[in-house]
Nucleic acid binder design. Sequence first.
DNA 1: TATTGTTATACTCTATAACTATA
DNA 2: TATAGTTATAGAGTATAACAATA
Lengths: 146, 146
Amino acid sequence: MTSISGDEINSLDVLLQQLAMTIRRQIANIASAYDLTVAQYLALMTIYRSDSYCTMSELADNTMQISATMTGIINRLENRGWVKRELDPSDRRVWRVNLTPDGKHQLEQLEAERRKLTEQVLCQFTTQEQQTLHALVDKYLAITIK
Amino acid sequence: MTSISGDEINSLDVLLQQLAMTIRRQIANIASAYDLTVAQYLALMTIYRSDSYCTMSELADNTMQISATMTGIINRLENRGWVKRELDPSDRRVWRVNLTPDGKHQLEQLEAERRKLTEQVLCQFTTQEQQTLHALVDKYLAITIK
DNA sequence: TATTGTTATACTCTATAACTATA
DNA sequence: TATAGTTATAGAGTATAACAATA
């Protein structure tokens, strides 16, 4: 027994913060090669993973921001041709935001690059280690969100 | 065998991003109760953990930002009494940035609050799970930084 | 000459409050 | 009345480039 439980939690806490900042910085670096900010990348990926369109509210909720902020982010992405807005015919207060074909294509390129970098890290873990890490992070998120 | 290695890496990748954003959001929430931004919190904690003072370059390196950005962050913290600048007598190009007594006191309060929240999550892990997570995140960071 | 840090500039993010349009 | 989204506004972060002071 080399450490007290409180100490272990403390150093794990510090390490998790470092991990969070490192991952965010890596996203920032790759996104900036496509002239995107982290906030723009997160909005685009939210739409991409939804597999169809997102409303402004869904984007705000998913990226944990308020709708006024999202308006600015989507305005800039729309001006640059990454996304387009379309009115929801069944509720004309709602905008459906979707990727343009070009936006989707570029985003897939960016993601392929980013995943290659992540793979270079994760492939140095055994399958067992990957699964263990997955389970532990899953548990962390489940508790946090609850 | 229920999953291919590539799939496991993909879903782990997504999960790690979620973790990063969740941790950052938690920092943002607690810091804002002290009227601090995430960038300000990170600068303050960098000084706090250094256990003495930091130079502007050290702050910029540690928070992965350029020095021009750090100038603005430290200016605002100085104006509000969290930190103070002192010239390094042995190299007068260098500023030594340190916490004020009041800044240190407030930061310790903030950290106590934040750690309590983290503990509420991590205490639901067994000691074994904590140590395993620690080791895996350690490994991740070691590979990434290398 | 090289290094440390600041200033000027431009753009983006962020949150609050007030607002419009639709349900 | 309630909801979806925008606009106006103000403050903060971010990066680039040019700069001053010191080594």
